[in-house]
Design a protein around this nucleic acid. Structure first.
Lengths: 149, 149
DNA sequence: GTGACTGCAAAGCTTTTGCATTAGA
DNA sequence: TCTAATGCAAAAGCTTTGCAGTCAC
């Protein structure tokens, strides 16, 4: 099984995109990322190695990788775009109190995929299940916000 | 069963938000909307009836309704936020090319809910399934990237 | 060598904020 | 009355664009 990094760079080559040092650095970062980085975060991180890299280059590369299906755009509403770099099926448990995001593997992904495929001719590239609620930690300290009404 | 419009206005009242004419107009629009309107679209539409309404008011009201759980914010592509006004369980088929969003009912929602409940003590309040890919229309006009190889 | 990529800066969007005025409860 | 909500305008963010120089192929 090829690594995420190899898959990304191979995808670039296969589509005749130029494999520049900046792009390699971005691929490496994305491949090892366990969170959902924003363009700004990618920029800040790559800057350590390439101090002159520009945001335009970051946006360009992220768009290319997105078009190639190597990462998935998850527009965070007002704050800007974020990228899903982990393409293995999982749900995000998003806490409405503290904003934490916890990954959770589910068994139903194949079922969801199958249902969608059966319903429409949609070229499915990524699937995202978001569960909104209150995480265990916050449930403990959550007592009454509702009661003040 | 109460109408969407009534549910929205009732939610406003119950939470002690003021029920202004502008908010009523926005609720009415959202309740009857079958698409996924953006703030700008809501603004343009409401302006016909209230020519002096401001974008700030639209954003404010949409945020309130979102906080009340009456509408859901969904990823629009780079253009900005869109709102889901249909709260019945369904997946969003989001086209990565044109940004179109198509609703699709699924049978697996209960299963997903059950799996999450079984896995972690997470106080689940909402569930969203987003499918990212390329819609049929865009698949047709999609030619370039692959053929340059 | 050639054309895609980079970096820089400015422009273009969407969304938020500050504040005086208005009006819902 | 009392304060949240409105409308206006300016500010703040995020993303895109134009262009000259550079570098992958």
């Amino acid at each position: 099984m090829t690594s995420r990094f190899e898959a990304m760079t191979e995808a670039l080559r296969r589509a005749n995109y130029r494999v520049t040092p900046q792009r390699l650095a971005i691929c490496k970062l994305l491949a090892s990322s366990k969170s959902h980085p924003s363009p700004a975060e990618v920029y800040e991180h790559i800057r350590r190695q390439y101090p002159t890299i520009s945001l335009a280059t970051v946006y360009n590369t992220l768009a290319v990788l997105r078009d190639l299906g190597e990462i998935i755009e998850i527009p965070g509403n007002a704050g800007g775009v974020r990228y899903e770099t982990d393409l293995t099926p999982h749900a995000n448990l998003i806490c409405l109190r503290c904003g934490s995001i916890t990954d959770l593997e589910l068994d139903v992904f194949e079922k969801v995929r199958t249902e969608i495929d059966a319903a429409v001719p949609f070229a499915l590239q990524g699937l995202r299940i978001d569960a909104f609620g209150v995480c265990p930690r916050c449930q403990a300290s959550e007592v009454k916000i509702e009661e003040n009404a």
